[in-house]
Structure formats: C-alpha cells, structure tokens
Amino acid sequence: MWEYSEKVQEYFYNPKNAGVMENASGIGDVGAISCGDALRLMIRVDPATDTITDAKFQTFGCGSAIASSSALTELIIGKTIDQALELSNQDIADFLGGLPPEKMHCSVMGYEALRAAVANYRGEAWEDDHEEGALICKCFGVDEGMIERAVRMNGLTTLEQVTHFTKAGGSCATCIEGIEEVLAKTNAAMVVEGLLDASEAFDPNEAVRPVRRPKAGKSPLAVTLEPLTKPKLTNLQKIRLIEEAIEGLRPFLRQDGGDCELIDVEGDRVMVKLSGACVGCQMASVTVNGVQERLIEKLGQPLRVIPV
C-alpha cells in the first residue's frame, strides 16, 4: 500500500473541480494510457485580465493522479496565466503534503496539462518533451532517463560521479548495482558513437574492492558488554549528529546549485531550510526523503525532516 498523505487521500476521496466544462477557453490533454495516466484540464480565462477564473479536470489514473489533478485546479484558479505558469510540479506535490517518489510523475502530468491548456488557449502548438524510465534510486527519486542524461551531458564514467551529479546512490546505496548497469550501458553506447574513449568507459567486469572499515581501537567483543538499552542521546548530541549528517550531504546538493541548512530540532521533527535550486527543483520532496533516510540511519531513531 502506498503511503499517501492525509491531503492526498482527501483530494482523492472528495476531488474538487472534477467534471466537464462547457465552452472552455483552453483544454490540455496529456498522459499516456499505457502508463495508466491521462488527464484533461479545462480552463476558463477572462481575456481582459488574463486571469484563470475556473478550472475543471477529468482523470484516468490512480489515487495520486486524481488528487494531483484536483490540486492543480485549486492552485491555478484566481491566478493570471503568467502566475500559474510559474507553478512547478513540486508546488502540486507540496500542496498535497508530498507524494511518494514513484508517484511524482502524477504531479508532472498536472504541470504538463497546464502548459498544454495554456498553449491551446493561446492557439500555440504544445510539444511534450518529457520522458521517464524505470525508477532506479528510490531515496532521491532518480530514474533511468535522468542518469542517462547526466552521464551523456557530463561524460561521467564512475559511480561516484553519477552520485555527485544526480544524488542517486547517495543515501542507502542499495541502488548502486542498478546505477552501474545504466552507466555501463550508456558508456558503451557513447563509445560506439565515438563520444567516449573505450579505455575510459565504465567497466562493469572490473571487480569492486571491498571497502575496509576504519580500525576500531578496541576489541569487537567489547560491543557485547555495552548495556542492552543504549543511553538516550542528549539533545545536544542529537543536534550535533544531525548537523554532521547534513554537512555530509551538502556537497551533493551544491552540485545542483542548491543547499540545505538546519533550522531547528523539536523532538523527532527536524526543520531544515532548502535554498537555491532545491526550492523550485522538481525533486525537492524526494530530496527531503533522502536527507531523512540519511539522518535516520545516522541516529538510529525515527525522525521527520520538514522543510520550512
């Protein structure tokens, strides 16, 4: 079962603005039936002020597709077209209290439907340049297409580089074999196309050396002598650990022109400030998930990361 937020459930069970609009000023049809998603967005525009006065939708899709469509209509009604076009798919996801990484494409569909409807209103043609592949890294919501593009555009040839450019693999690292497979395939294609020297291409057959742990200065048996219940972290210790973990992630975020700063810690709630490219970034809510995973791993206790 997916973990849908309360808001997603509310907008799925009682969607607002569902249905057909007669004499719409603009209609946007997007989606792909093979993926189980299709959305028709209808908008009414007041030509004098260029304001969207009403919006309706019809959706063939799962719970989050219906919720995203409804959220989109709520977000755009009352906005001018230019204001509406400033909305990102992340705004739709945020409005809904976040979406699972596998479901972010539902918010992308809403974002595209708006562009299609506006193009239709303005009498322009609209081309969909969006593509996606299998989701490779769940922590950061990175799919095959994103890895392939990063590898091609930047001539990447190692796993570490891919992590720097896409964040994929930067948290739990259970996805690194999947990343390496895409890297190997893409590099091989680049070699054939003459874009990459064969000697530099990622070699999937080269055995990866096991990584040694730093020497622990005491006998591993000592571990069993520790009391069974770990002493609770003091608030100060907890904040230090959180700070350290966030510091460790910042280089990845800065690669993308973004950043993340610790604001406050209240019980199990960790308030952070995302800045720079992270704010409007399509993947901000997945970034938050990634940071959260990392913190939980570091502290060994449940935490919620909340962007403020």
């Binding site: 209609i27 049809d29 997007v30 989606g31 792909a32 039936i33 093979s34 993926c35 299709a38 959305l39 028709r40 595209e112 299609a116 609209w126 081309e127 969909d128 969006h130 593509e131 996606e132």
Partner: peptide
C-alpha cells in the same frame, strides 16, 4: 465532442 486524444509521453 472532440475525441480525447492526449499527447502521449
């Protein structure tokens, strides 16, 4: 009246 024919991704 217009057939629903979305832009396929």
């Amino acid at each position: 009246d217009a057939a629903f024919n979305p832009t396929y991704a």
